[in-house]
Design a protein around this nucleic acid. Structure first.
Length: 799
DNA sequence: GACTAGCGGGG
DNA sequence: GTGTACGCTAGTC
């Protein structure tokens, strides 16, 4: 049987595969997969004999290997004898390994690889690859008699469904034990659009009214089964929608049979949150993907809400609704509820559109890494490189070192080294900018200078090898190494793709496909350096990491010099980028500079045009904001206005950045701040803009420090209002004596009792901190912003 | 100045 | 990752 591999699941003793075939989805069960690890012996024969008889008692169960064999392996490129130990279950590995470590004092390798990932490695599977299956049909499942055999095939069309839930949230943060899910929207690539809810909504044809929350969850499951998507997406579904849905379903006694085999979702804790698996479909949280792009520099925004990301990537606005309004919409019904339904629908629709932008990239990344889309969609860049290397190790019979234990990791963290060159920027507002960057600076350095932990300071090239500037290390020029050749392969493929891209029509499907692949290759290539310097990495090497930055400083400084010689004014430079003022120079001059630099610099080290920016404001190292020709802002290091800040601070910061970057007018920025300050003093600012939202994370008794939100929660309790952990506390700071906590009062009380807020708190602690860093570099002082009126507060800003 | 606590996405 | 971020900021003590 042949088909396309969709999903691989770990079912304890068995591996389950979901395969798309001509006859539909087939579930295959592999009962013959035995995870293994390797032991590095000191006395091969003796220890091999001991391990062959190895059996451990655990309670009344006996743990023994399924097989023990001798193999030739490699350790850092050198051939060694290794003892391979295969086990029936992954959970048998640890007790055996611990015994081997404690009783025989031998080192083990490759024992900390999760089963599904190991399965991909062992059988050389790729996500969505073609697979040949052989087995017997039993109970609607295919029992495999041989391991799946991969073959190359074109990417299949995958159906994608997005969903979004709305939740009743009278306490600010919804409580899954009390607050119902009130709406669920769905959208799929087949054009399906639906909002499920249990109150009537007039005049929307995509709304389906059901009898209640329980029926809604059942209908949701029914629709997912009917539409049967391959991929399920949403925004922040790992952290919110799925945990909430599962919790409600349990509460209401509804089985969320979303899996392709009718199974319920499972959550695996990973990093700080849970990732939800739906068997046979691939659940992708688009927020995780957006976070990844923010980390690798693909997107840089102030906020990463669905609306903001959608606007940035799709160039369109979507309706939005304040989270505090949801309760009102639901209670009021009618037009207000219609608005909520429209918003809910737009969230699922936007998530679906977003998935069409993001999934191709992550599918490409997953196929390069050789791990599942589910996993790769939640990896950090360093993890991606590591898993690529683990696959490479497997192919070369190289032993996979374990992730370092805590002490090892701490030791590594203490070894600091010199980083990249960062120039102190020419502070202030600049116009007509060009940014060049060496996107591939570090990869090029690794390849050009063969930087590789396996090749460090070899004996064979003591003389003659290139020495790392400042450090004096050298890298072997005779041996290939391990990491550098993998990177070289990626970079070379990317160069080939870029050459092909030039021949293609930009609007063609083929172009898009190749473009995405080269982008994926670029992202992974750029992450090798970070992996080498990451304390938790398996192939961590401080010497390699610091050699790369040393070469990097050397080349960027040389390029700055070349740009300046050509008459470009360099106003900022960080690691691999150069921000220059075009001045009297044209865009063509900028392109000519690139050519010139590229002719001079060695190897594959290549300068690229990042973009042209009509305006930019530079504050300090790593803190600046730019606006591109499409009026899209890039903000770096200034993104510190969060939900525990009043809206007035956010709004003023936005106004200031807009005035400066869009209008190019510091004066308008100044006026915006002055007006806000004046409005605050004249009590003209609406209360909504002054509310600070902070979540109560613990029960009141647990707090040692009584912050403003805790103090407000205590006041609420005194007044007989229910207070519980998880609640969102909305407060306003009043005028009067005492600490901020003393003067913080519940927002609704403020409204009812017509209390007076403290303008000076909002000026000094909210508005000014949000805008000062920017205004400062434009030459304004706090006094200028405060409009020359007599100073009421004793602010510490300019002492 | 040390320490405590919350932010992010979602609703 | 068979596991519990991370780096920053404000406010209290």
């Amino acid at each position: 049987m042949r088909g396309i591999l969709l999903d691989v699941c770990d079912e304890g003793r068995n591996i389950e595969l979901f395969v798309k075939t001509e006859k539909g989805i087939v579930k295959a069960v592999d009962e013959n997969f035995f995870p293994c690890f390797y032991v590095l012996p000191k006395e091969v024969d003796r220890e091999f004999r001991i391990l062959r008889k190895l059996a451990l008692k655990e309670g009344n169960r006996e743990i023994r290997p399924v097989s023990v064999s001798l193999e030739k392996k490699f350790l850092r490129g050198n051939q060694v004898d290794a003892i391979r130990i295969a086990v029936a279950k992954h959970s048998d590995i640890d007790p055996l390994r611990h015994f081997i470590r404690d009783a025989l004092h031998l080192q083990s390798f490759g024992y900390d690889l999760p089963v599904v990932r190991r399965y991909f490695l062992t059988h050389r599977l790729l996500p969505f690859c073609g697979v040949c299956l052989e087995g017997e049909i039993k109970d609607n499942e295919l029992r495999l008699t041989r391991p799946p055999e991969p073959f190359e095939s074109r990417m299949p069309e995958l159906s994608v469904m997005s969903f979004d839930i709305e939740v009743y949230n009278p306490a600010g943060t919804p409580r899954p034990d009390k607050d119902p899910v009130i709406m669920i929207s769905l959208a799929d690539t087949g054009g399906f659009r639906k909002v499920l809810t249990w109150k009537s909504v007039p005049g929307l044809d995509y709304v389906e009214e059901v009898g209640g929350e329980r029926q809604m969850l059942r209908r949701f499951v029914e629709i997912v089964q009917e539409r049967d998507p391959d991929i399920l997406v949403g925004y922040n579904t790992d952290l919110f929608d799925f945990p909430y849905l599962r919790s409600r379903a349990e509460h209401l006694g509804v089985k969320l049979k979303l899996g392709r085999d009718g199974s319920e979702p499972t959550a695996r804790r990973r990093r700080f949150a849970s990732a939800t698996r739906v068997k046979g479909r691939i659940h992708c949280d688009l927020y995780a993907m957006v976070n990844f792009l923010a980390l690798t520099g693909g997107i840089r925004l102030i906020h990463y809400t669905l609306g903001d990301v959608y606007k940035y990537l799709l160039g369109k606005e979507k309706p939005d609704i304040e989270f505090t309004e949801i309760v009102r919409c639901w209670d009021e019904g009618g037009e207000a509820l219609k608005e909520l339904a429209e918003y809910c629908m737009s969230d699922a629709a936007a998530a679906l559109e977003l998935s069409q932008e993001l999934l191709p990239l992550f599918i490409e990344l997953a196929r390069i890494i050789g791990q599942s889309l589910f996993d790769v969609g939640r990896m950090t860049p360093g993890q991606m490189v590591e898993w690529l290397l683990i696959r490479e190790a497997e192919a070369r019979q190289e032993l996979v070192p374990p992730r370092p234990v805590a002490e090892e990791q701490e030791e590594r963290e203490e070894e600091t080294y010199a980083g990249a060159y960062v120039m102190e920027p020419e502070q202030g507002l600049h116009e007509n900018l060009v940014v060049f960057d060496f996107r591939s600076l570090y990869p090029s350095i690794i390849i050009t200078h063969r930087i590789d932990p396996f090749n460090l300071n070899c004996e064979c090239c003591r003389d003659g090898a290139t020495v790392v500037p400042e450090l004096g290390y050298h890298f072997c020029t005779k041996r290939e190494g391990f990491i550098a050749p993998v990177l070289k392969r990626l970079v070379e493929e990317r160069i080939k793709l870029k050459r092909e891209l030039k021949k293609l029509e930009k609007s063609s499907e083929e172009y898009k496909k190749l473009y995405v692949r080269q982008n994926a290759l670029k992202i992974i290539s750029n992450s090798f350096y970070g992996m080498l310097g990451f304390s938790k990495a398996r192939w961590y090497s401080k010497e390699c990491a610091e050699s790369i930055t040393a070469f990097g400083r050397h080349y960027i400084q040389r390029t700055i010099k070349l740009a300046e010689e050509d008459g470009f004014k360099v106003i900022y430079s960080d690691t691999d980028s150069l921000h220059c003022k075009l001045g009297a120079k044209s865009k063509e001059d900028a392109l000519r500079l690139i050519e010139k630099v590229n002719r001079i610099l060695p190897g594959c080290i290549e300068l690229e045009l990042e973009d042209f920016y009509p305006r930019g404001i530079y504050i300090t190292k790593k803190r600046y904001a730019l606006i591109d020709e499409k009026n899209r802002m890039t903000v770096k290091g200034l993104e510190f206005v969060r939900r525990d800040w009043a809206a007035i601070a956010k709004k003023t910061q936005e106004k200031v950045l807009k005035a400066i970057l869009v209008e190019g007018s510091p004066k308008q920025a100044l006026e915006a701040v002055r007006r806000t300050i004046q409005d605050l003093r004249e009590y003209k600012v609406p209360l909504e803009d002054l509310i600070i939202y902070t979540q109560l994370k613990m029960s009141l008794e647990e707090y040692k420090a009584i912050g403003p939100h805790v103090s407000v929660a205590m006041k609420l309790k005194q007044r007989g209002r229910p207070v519980e952990p998880g609640m969102m506390i909305a407060y306003v700071v009043a005028k009067g004596p005492g600490s901020i906590s003393d003067r913080a009062f519940p927002a609704d009380e403020f409204k009812k009792q017509r209390m007076k807020y403290d303008p000076e708190y909002y000026i000094d602690h909210q508005v000014l901190p949000a805008v000062m860093r920017i205004m400062e570099v434009l030459g304004f002082r706090e006094e200028d912003l405060k409009g020359g009126e007599k100073q009421v507060s004793l602010s510490k800003f300019f002492q």
